[in-house]
Write a protein that binds this DNA or RNA. Structure first.
Lengths: 198, 198
DNA sequence: GCGCGTAGTTGCGCCAGCGCAACGACGGCC
DNA sequence: GGCCGTCGTTGCGCTGGCGCAACTACGCGC
């Protein structure tokens, strides 16, 4: 059990356990020496954390922080190794998960190099709405708290730029926001609007 | 056997084989709809390609192009699966390789969001010199051909900016270049110079 | 219900880096 | 050894987005 803002694992620490999220959401980050923080991705209920723990002498490549009250199931790394040796399918599945994350990271890299800021922010919002959104009468509400700063860390831009973009989209009716919460009214329209501004 | 510029595998194709580089170098890329290309990384002799082939129904996440004449050993995906089931250590090693690439991708993401262009280019050069460089009297020579455009695709910037940076560093004696080839005279000094310009 | 900490907004100036264009220089090939 | 394609250079103008500052608006805790 962790409350929001507590950290489950820190970048560089020995990966001596793996976990499965039961309730709540995690934010995976990396921080640069100069203080800037990159958000790698968000995870929610049912997502496995630290597949890497099956590898000997592994270290966490990211810091995991709870963004909402969190309940997780935890396994010791050595048990994970024993299990994954006993059940090859488990290891294959973990590998498959890693491969998925890899693909995601490559896509992000590509967006960072070839898309302009508005597109990246719009895509990030659409992805969040899709992955951790719930249907409401107003649109897809992102179920965990998210600030302008976090959206900036997720897209490699600044708090200010995000604020301006979000304000513009909200006045166009594509988005609804309140302190720490966001609802995407119409994902495809949002993405299209960001592309059109190009 | 492939000659330079031929492609070994294309992004999106079914990953029905894996390979091990014996001689030559590969460039892994992803291309965006608008034509821009991102270079994911370079690989050389001894590096395994397409660990992903052990997963059922996998597709290549990148395009692999030879940058110099290439000789590879090839295994059919089904044989890889059989082997990796028979030898759990093999699967663990492949997973370990994937995890290394993941870490690399995360680092690249971080640099793209938090570093300025000169730093990124300098780091890319240092990394290339380290990973695929050979010691010469003048410094570390990157053993495979590399153009300004490729350096730009690797760092998310433009051909022009790279050209200017490289010209400046060369006149400072930190770098030696000729058409398609680069030699880093003193890697730490180069990185420092890029940081100082900040 | 008051105060304080955190989140969000907005105006303004600035500059890194992009995008041409036009040109120069290799070097491979027949 | 001459030609042509690719690679690299450099000058110039423009602008997206950053960075600060100063301010406003929530909302939690006591």
């Amino acid at each position: 059990m962790l409350s929001a803002r507590e950290t489950l694992a820190s970048e560089g620490d020995a990966a001596d356990f793996a976990a499965l999220i039961q309730v709540g959401h995690l934010k995976l980050t990396r921080s640069a020496p100069d203080g800037t923080e990159v958000i790698v991705r968000y995870m929610g209920p049912g997502d496995p954390f630290a597949a890497i723990a099956v590898l000997p002498n592994a270290r966490f490549p990211v810091t995991a922080t709870a963004v909402s009250p969190l309940r997780v199931l935890v396994w010791a790394a050595e048990d994970m190794r024993a299990l994954s040796d006993a059940f090859p399918r488990l290891k294959t599945n973990l590998m498959s998960a890693m491969s998925g994350h890899m693909t995601g990271a490559l896509t992000r890299m590509q967006e960072l190099t070839s898309d302009r800021v508005p597109q990246r922010v719009a895509r990030a919002l659409v992805r969040l709405a899709h992955d951790s959104g719930e249907r409401t009468p107003q649109g897809w509400r992102i179920v965990h708290p998210i600030t302008r700063q976090e959206l900036a860390d997720l897209t490699g831009t600044s708090l200010f730029t995000v604020s301006r973009l979000v304000a513009a989209w909200e006045s166009d009716g594509l988005l609804r926001t309140s302190r720490g919460a966001m609802t995407v009214v119409d994902p495809p329209a949002l993405e299209e609007a960001a592309a059109a501004a190009e």
